[in-house]
């Protein structure tokens, strides 16, 4: 039981990170209908920028951890968001009204570019950082000596995710930008006719998605204590799986899917085998889609005849 509770905590933390990345996929899919294959790499770039900012801040002698974290968060969000914006401008906007497969391949190409760009720029080796946020709480200690740990970093990841989701939900449901985004999702031509700046709205979608991915990158860096140039691929596929599992286009679905993938992965590793955790996640995706072809929270597709 204790073991189960501990895995539950670990799974929720991992799921929060996947969920943050998955939101970027689902937003872009909802609004432009394309799989942004480069999004996983955006997450990786976010992790790298966070890492470099950390290094600089520490080397200039800053010691107050909350200040460091805040600065790192803002810098990595800002720069990564600019990456998202630039990629949309260069690789996707020229293909907006093109054939379905063209933007997808452009995105795959962009993903290769980003992966190898960071390999060239920062080298192929794994980059570790010392643990910044130490300590935690012992929730429960059983008779046989097993303890359920809740570390501070885990609390931070979950809290940050909740706060970001709250801001994000407010943004989508209450602001002008959110309304524009929802309008573009329904019908871009009509939205444009009604005075919505479609180009700007789509750009903002990429910017927000990239910023959330940057947060996920920072969380990953803090939680696992390392980044490498290839981490975007696996995390990206998992997060996309999460988005599809939750029902692509649905924002709560992305978060739910992220949590589901995080939990499946953690429990599978804990109770069955670590080696097959990804196989389990992908297999469950396939099984869910067979029975719920539009994911957990996706709108059922009504075929117009």
């Amino acid at each position: 039981m204790d073991y189960f509770a501990q895995q539950l905590i670990n799974g929720l933390v991992l799921g929060s990170i996947y969920g943050l990345i998955a939101i970027g996929y689902t937003m872009v899919y909802g609004i432009v209908g394309m799989i942004n294959f480069a999004h996983g790499d955006i997450f990786m770039i976010g992790g790298f920028i966070a890492l470099i900012t950390f290094l600089i801040l520490i080397s200039v002698g800053l010691t107050a951890i909350p200040v460091i974290l805040l600065v790192v968060l803002l810098v990595s969000m800002a720069i990564t968001a600019l990456y998202g914006w630039t990629i949309e401008r260069i690789a996707y906007r020229p293909l907006r009204h093109s054939f379905r497969l063209a933007p997808m391949l452009s995105a795959i190409g962009m993903s290769f570019v980003l992966t190898n760009y960071s390999q060239v720029a920062q080298g192929a080796r794994v980059k570790p950082i010392p643990p910044f946020i130490k300590g935690g709480y012992t929730l429960h200690e059983s008779a046989n000596g097993f303890v359920i740990q809740l570390s501070n970093i885990q609390i931070m990841v979950v809290l940050t995710t909740i706060v970001l989701l709250a801001i994000f939900t407010w943004l989508v449901s209450r602001t002008r930008l959110g309304r524009d985004m929802r309008a573009c999702e329904q019908d871009q031509t009509m939205a444009a006719l009604l005075g919505v700046d479609v180009d700007r709205t789509i750009s903002m979608t990429f910017v927000i998605g990239a910023a959330l991915a940057a947060v996920a990158g920072l969380m990953y860096l803090l939680y696992y204590g390392l980044v490498d140039f290839f981490m975007g691929f696996v995390a990206g596929i998992k997060a996309f799986t999460a988005a599809v599992l939750g029902g692509i286009g649905s924002l709560p679905g992305a978060m739910l899917g992220g949590l589901a993938i995080g939990l499946i992965e953690t429990f599978w590793s804990a109770y069955f085998s670590v080696e097959y955790k990804d196989v389990a996640a992908f297999s469950i995706l396939i099984v869910v889609l067979i029975f719920m072809p539009t994911g957990l929270l996706g709108r059922p597709e009504v075929e117009k005849v």
Binding site: Y29, I35, M104, I237, F240, T241, V244, I248, S273, E275, Y276, D278, V279, F282, S283, L285, I286, L289, I290, P293, T294, E301
Partner: peptide, 28 residues
């Protein structure tokens, strides 16, 4: 057989997942 009734990008992601499953099974 099970997945071909999926449409569009759902099919894409399922085939991608299948490719990864095969590779991971080979590795493990």
């Amino acid at each position: 057989f099970p997945v071909l009734r999926l449409r569009g990008d759902y099919l894409a992601i399922v085939t991608l997942a299948f490719g990864e499953i095969i590779r991971l099974v080979i590795i493990n």
